Simulated scan of single mutants.
Amino acid sequence: MRKITFKLITRLSTKYIENGIILILILFSYGIIGSYFIMGLNLVDSIYYAIITMATVGYGDYTPTTGIQKLFATTLALGGVALLAYVFNVILTNFQERMGLFSRGAKKMKAIQNMDSYYILCGYGRVGKVVYKELNRRQQNIVIFEKNEELCEDFEESTSSIILNKDATEDDLIAKLAGKKCKSVIISTGDDVTNLFIVLTIRETNPDAWIVSRVSKLENFSRLRKAGADKLVSPEIIGGKDLYLESAKPHLLRLTVQHTPEEILDEFKVISKYDCTLENIDYHIPGIETPLSRDIKTMHMEDGKRYQNYLKENEEAMAALKNLYRSVNNIHSHWISGPNRNTLNELVKELEKQETIIGKNLTDKEIAEITKKEIERE
């Protein structure tokens, strides 16, 4: 209720000032016309009489005598008193509003100064609200820049969450806050140009700041990267990937297997043979439910041969891969997409002839139980 009241006062005060000026001009015109025709004064004296009567000065040099003159003078004086009270009230209201804004702004800056560290979030729209929930869930301090006050009506501020209704592209405050105490700047507005200006504003004075920016158009990736963004994220691209994976689920297989690094190429020959795509690989550390994931997204045999040659030419890479396989007891899962379910079934049958298949479409929890048994067996 307090926010709504403040919002109404802020909007209405400007309207009242404009209306006040119009009413003063109308009353002044009324006073001049009435003085000229009712009081019988010339134009200069009419202006003079209208002003002193409206201001309730009343020098007495012109005194109304008839009833119509007295009625005119009374209405002009009452109108002047009412307008003076009105204008004074508007000025006082605006002063109180400005003092309130100054006081709230000072309190917010004090709260930010008291934070040991914080994240800066630019934009509290559809994506920004999701980012805020994730940060808040992890009990992080957050400073939000959002110029649209309507988006912030339901936001509840606290000592760890401060919102500043400022335009980050026009206010240098964001550059000052993106210093040593700032863990990261997250830019989540939907406008790439706005994001670019914010990145430039911050990077100009904070070369070490870690900046993560949202980007909507593919052609703007390089621009934001050159401007100084450390990481770029496209919700549109991520959303498209999720839509594809959901649509491919009837033809998507998670195959948990156990084999050595030397058998990688033989395995990939089978995957390529059936025109399937190796989407990614999950490496299952014994006893840990969440796996290490690695994106692959390849279906061409040339990619498999190229990787095999790379391992042969780089002993360190081969040694690192063997250490990884050793740490997971050679157990890992392949996410494989194919043209249809029958093709995937044929692929599994052929793979069973050359490697150990632990299971199909197992959950991380089920695989963690299997890896625990591997540890106990050792």
Rank of each mutant, 00 (worst) to 15 (best):
P250H: 02
K217T: 09
E153N: 09
L218K: 15
L71T: 15
M39I: 02
S184Q: 15
V212N: 01
D191K: 13
R225W: 13
I211P: 00
R254I: 12
A168Q: 04
I336F: 07
K360M: 04
T93Q: 06
M1S: 14
V215E: 02
K110C: 03
L83E: 09
T277Y: 11
H284F: 10
E18I: 15
I357Y: 03
S103V: 11
Q69G: 07
L362S: 02
G228I: 03
E366N: 06
N148I: 07
T356Q: 13
T14I: 14
N148Y: 11
Q113G: 10
V193A: 07
N280K: 14
R203A: 10
T290Y: 10
Y30S: 01
R214V: 05
I22W: 13
S46I: 04
I32D: 01
G20V: 09
A106T: 13
N329G: 01
L23G: 05
K349D: 15
L278H: 08
P64A: 01
T169N: 02
Y49E: 00
W335F: 12
L224V: 01
Y86D: 02
I187A: 04
E153V: 11
I163N: 06
I47H: 06
R326P: 01
P291R: 00
T66F: 11
A317P: 02
G338Y: 04
Y30M: 02
E313R: 14
E18C: 13
Y48L: 06
L224R: 02
L27E: 07
L196T: 07
V185D: 05
F102Y: 14
Q140T: 01
K373G: 07
V87W: 10
I331S: 06
E149T: 13
S327Y: 08
I21Q: 01
S29R: 03
K365E: 14
T93W: 00
K360G: 04
L76E: 04
N342C: 05
V212Y: 00
N165P: 00
P235W: 07
G80F: 00
V199A: 01
I211Y: 00
L151Q: 08
F37H: 10
K273E: 08
E302N: 14
K181M: 07
I357Q: 00
R225C: 13
P207N: 09
S46E: 04
A319Y: 06
G128A: 07
I285G: 01
A168F: 04
G67E: 10
E374N: 08
R326H: 15
V81Q: 05
H300M: 14
D171H: 03
L164Y: 09
A368W: 05
I174F: 03
V185R: 07
L344C: 05
K108I: 00
R2G: 08
R223K: 15
E97R: 11
A106Q: 14
R254A: 10
R294V: 09
N42V: 03
K305Y: 15
N94P: 07
T298L: 13
N19E: 13
I296H: 00
D61I: 15
L218T: 14
F221W: 14
S327M: 09
K249I: 07
H300K: 15
Y283R: 06
I4D: 12
I288D: 08
G79K: 06
V348M: 02
V233M: 12
L344V: 00
P235R: 05
D154E: 13
L164P: 06
W335Q: 04
F102C: 11
N165S: 08
I9W: 08
H259K: 10
G67W: 09
N329E: 02
R341D: 01
E204T: 11
G100H: 12
T189E: 04
E204Y: 12
I336K: 05
